[in-house]
Design a binder for these strands. Sequence first.
DNA 1: ATGATTGCTGCAATCGTTTGCAAACTCTCG
DNA 2: CGAGAGTTTGCAAACGATTGCAGCAATCAT
Lengths: 336, 336
Amino acid sequence: MIKIEDVARLAEVSPSTVSRALTRPEMVAPTTRERVVHAAHQLGYQPNKLARGLRKRQSHLLGLMVTDILAPFHATLAKGVQDAAEKHGYVVFLFNTDEQPEKERRYLKELQGHLPEGLLIVPTSQTRQNLGIVPGLTVIELDRTSGTPGVHSVLVDNVAGARRAVEHLIQLGHRRIGMVAGPPTVTTAVERLEGYKQALKAAGIPFQRRWVATGDHKEEGGYRAARQMLELPLEQRPTALFAGNSEMAAGAVLAIRDLGLRIPEELSLVSFDDTRWARLMQPPLTVVAQPAYDLGYLACETLISILGRQEPVQATSLRLATELIVRSSAAPPPQR
Amino acid sequence: MIKIEDVARLAEVSPSTVSRALTRPEMVAPTTRERVVHAAHQLGYQPNKLARGLRKRQSHLLGLMVTDILAPFHATLAKGVQDAAEKHGYVVFLFNTDEQPEKERRYLKELQGHLPEGLLIVPTSQTRQNLGIVPGLTVIELDRTSGTPGVHSVLVDNVAGARRAVEHLIQLGHRRIGMVAGPPTVTTAVERLEGYKQALKAAGIPFQRRWVATGDHKEEGGYRAARQMLELPLEQRPTALFAGNSEMAAGAVLAIRDLGLRIPEELSLVSFDDTRWARLMQPPLTVVAQPAYDLGYLACETLISILGRQEPVQATSLRLATELIVRSSAAPPPQR
DNA sequence: ATGATTGCTGCAATCGTTTGCAAACTCTCG
DNA sequence: CGAGAGTTTGCAAACGATTGCAGCAATCAT
């Protein structure tokens, strides 16, 4: 590994001058600068970030923790974060917590040793406590909030998105609408349920407990929840289902198929969160699409801009709008 | 940030002793050790990896470059890598090259400054040249090879996988089988085409140029390629299609639908690479599944074991087997 | 011509950790 | 009691970069 001293020797200057020529060009004479730059290039010099980070006490490193990198939503979000980070010369450490608070703890400790300048995190249920591991670190929460005071957040307008989806079903004539809800420990799930309730209320449809089944945001849970509602006696059975996320929607699709129901003739289905297969399945699924890439990109930009400021910044909170994409999985309820 | 000196003061020993107590316990007296450990714990001491890395000239860092983190195959692979890395105390930098050699260059430079100990890479078309940026680094290529001498690789047995898929179609009675192939610059695409040819040859079916259309491994390219073959006059048109990867299979599905053909009654479809939607679409897609997670996990384990050895290691190459998952998108050809 | 100013460069200290070496201490045994 | 061996500890020098300070030369004003 070429170091600054090698460049210095070749350019016949001191290491200090090399450092300055490369990082603060205006401080060194043009002719010297050129000699240094040339020597550096010739040797293929790359500054040692460890040494630099140690001395400058900054790493240009960001941490990103998502709960499930395999979910397209998270992968997309991660890409947005990385693209934004790269634009500003930051590098990001990506960790996958798998929704496990204990993994989150471990990764936070690991991360801390690398002196990150900021953290972007999709919280788990224990994030509020876990953040104690990294005191003083600037944190932005993505997608969900942990309720930790003082942290910034970039979220999606879940209430409005869910309400819009359910309104769509209501407009088609549905009155018995079931919701496959996510776990109440996750803020997005709570908000989407709230949107569902608001839509019902606005339409004067009474809220019914039996038409809400809770899953775990996974396919398996979605399958069970959907099945539970669809096995109600025919006259109580929902004519439409609203799934709280795409994984559970996948489970719902499987359940619906197993019960031999046809979409959308016998049952309408709308889901939160768009995916590749939503467009490819037959019939294509009507969904509430989230701006996942923008979410990540924006969050990262926000984080970096906060890092740039001297004085402490008020905790900011951003909500991005969703978009209802009407495809063909929702239709008027069957006549009887 | 608590440093070793703080711990030393609290435990009333020198910094050297703290360092030894924490990293080479057998070198310090039990009572001292305990005092140090206790002090460290009490202060919440976390070693500064930058300083340590600088001094020991090792970072416990690995680089991972994939060409498309949004593709489930890559995301899964990345997860395998990370899980294995974590098990051994390594951290991984994830980069996304988007198939762009120039991004790859940039990221390699960036990575180099952090003194990674190894690199796992899904090569692009220029990887062979680009690897010159990181001389001496231990490299493992994943999924594809770049032809660089001396690098290790962990791959999938594409030839056998593709052959198996096409044999399946032949067994069903197909004789006119089209292949939506990937770009010839990518080794996996070449190998899968080879498998296709081998299967035909073994069955005594002559290879025909017009039944191979090349896409770009993306949906768009798959759509065009499929369409091109399916618009041949009826008696020349393939009765089955084999897609070289899942993205192109998605394009093919769309093309088939646009042409109003039914799967599998009028056209059979088999694809390389399993995905979520392959199982969810109607009819579920028959695919050649790749052990993506294992690929990443194994590659990372291999890399780490190589790093552990002193003497230079012979370039190793691993091939993992694929699995044909028969679902319902392939059936006997229509009778005429 | 002199002193002040400016621009450029190098010296040396620093970031937090590890580690070779030697000093200090403990223990054993003649 | 003291030599020798074996432990345990601390000192100080690294690792590779950045930066405050001071020195030096060139330029400018008077």
